[in-house]
Amino acid sequence: MPVPRFWREQKGRYNLIGTYCKKCGKHFYPARSICPFCRRSGEIEDFQFKGKGEIVTYSVIHASSEDFDHLTPYILAIVKLDEGPCITTQIVDEPTDIKIGDRVKAVFRRLGSDGKAGIIYYGTKFVIDN
């Protein structure tokens, strides 16, 4: 991924910063600049999510693209944040009996890198919240 493409989303990826609409109270992650519910009459502001939520669904990925090959098998999941929105993420540290509904919390991890010599992408993944 070219450097600017990662860099411009850094804040959102590092600290789960999305947006919320002051008018309808709905939260969005990733950030949306227009509220899909209030549309042009919405009032969008930045919002930092607390990083807690629960697993909606998940899969253990055994075959991946080259960028993720070294991580296989890894757990891909959709997590519903306590504030509302669902996000696609990884559940790390090899939970043994993961199931839908498990509570999770955000951790800071490497998302990948632009090859061996390129920049390293960091961001948010999740672990089971015991």
């Binding site: 991924m1 990826r13 899969s59 990925i61 075959a63 991946s64 693209s65 960028d67 993720f68 991580l71 890894y74 891909l76 696609t88 993420t89 990884q90 998302l111 990948g112 992408y121 961001g123 993944k125």
Partner: peptide, 10 residues
Amino acid sequence: EGIMGATFPG
């Protein structure tokens, strides 16, 4: 989705 390792089968 892609940056988190989401594949189509996934």
